[in-house]
């Protein structure tokens, strides 16, 4: 090798090495930037989901207030006016008025029940278990389905936001069971374990084949299941759903404590 070319050869090798190191360094830095970007994106998505839920809760609370203060009041007024009617002339009229009063009373109770279950402030003041019991009693009274609450903890140490989320998921699941399962028995359970709270719902309805379950879980266009999964994501809970044809459906939500 010509001695004059030694230095340029070393310089050339150094240049190629520097360029290679530069590109490797860029790859590492870009990976870091990508991770940071992904984290920011997730935080943004989380904040967006939370505000979406907050808005929905606020809307439900407004509807609940409207039901209680306006429609409930009109129904009560109607009942008072019925009570103020002059004594009826015939037995038939007595019976009709009594029946109307009974219907109005039922309407007022339903409005109150609905208003209570829609308003998140009630979950905060009464607690999750009491609100769920109230709803279960209401469903049992309807006679369509028998709902059992087991295991049922006496008290749960949960953040009020998480309680509202769990309550909404419970409502959504019950709603789905009533609409689609054709079940006549439902077992709801909340179990507080060392590291997690397990919330489970099981029915004895028609269930569904594996393919339908997979489609429902991953490509569902309905809002109910999507909302439950959204809420689980926000509170960091895992969602599991199992079902077999004619063997009912089992749902569990595991919330780390």
């Amino acid at each position: 090798m010509n001695p004059d070319s030694t230095i340029p050869l070393i310089a050339g090798t150094a240049l190629v090495s520097v360029l290679t190191v530069f590109i490797i360094l860029f790859v590492i830095l870009y990976k870091k930037a990508q991770l940071r970007f992904e984290l920011e994106r997730q935080q943004f998505e989380q904040a967006l989901l939370e505000s979406e839920v907050e808005i929905r809760e606020q809307t439900l609370a407004d509807i609940a207030r409207e039901l209680h203060d306006n429609i409930g009041q009109i129904a009560s007024l109607a009942k008072i006016q019925l009570n103020m009617l002059p004594p009826p002339a015939s037995d038939e009229e007595v019976e009709k008025i009594a029946e109307s009063k009974q219907l109005l009373q039922h309407l007022i109770t339903e409005i109150r029940g609905l208003s209570n279950s829609l308003n998140y402030e009630n979950v905060q003041s009464m607690g999750l278990i009491a609100m769920m019991e109230k709803d279960i009693n209401r469903i049992n009274k309807s006679g369509f389905v028998k709902v059992t609450f087991h295991p049922k903890p006496t008290a749960l140490s949960l953040d009020s936001k998480i309680s509202i989320f769990l309550y909404r998921m419970f409502q959504e699941t019950i709603n789905n069971i009533l609409k689609h399962s054709e079940a006549n028995q439902v077992v709801i359970g909340i179990e507080e374990k060392a590291q997690e709270i397990v919330f489970s719902i099981e029915d004895n309805g028609v269930g569904m084949p594996k393919e339908k379950l997979q489609k429902l879980l991953h490509d569902s266009t309905g809002n109910g299941l999507k909302n439950i999964k959204h809420r689980c994501k926000i509170i960091g809970a895992s969602f599991n759903m199992e079902s077999r044809p004619n063997m009912g459906t089992f749902i569990s939500i595991n919330l780390p404590t």
């Binding site: 860029f26 830095l29 870009y30 990976k31 930037a33 990508q34 940071r36 970007f37």
Partner: peptide
């Protein structure tokens, strides 16, 4: 500029 505005696609 790529580091300043990364995207999800693998590099």
């Amino acid at each position: 500029s790529m580091i300043k505005s990364p995207v999800n696609t693998p590099l």
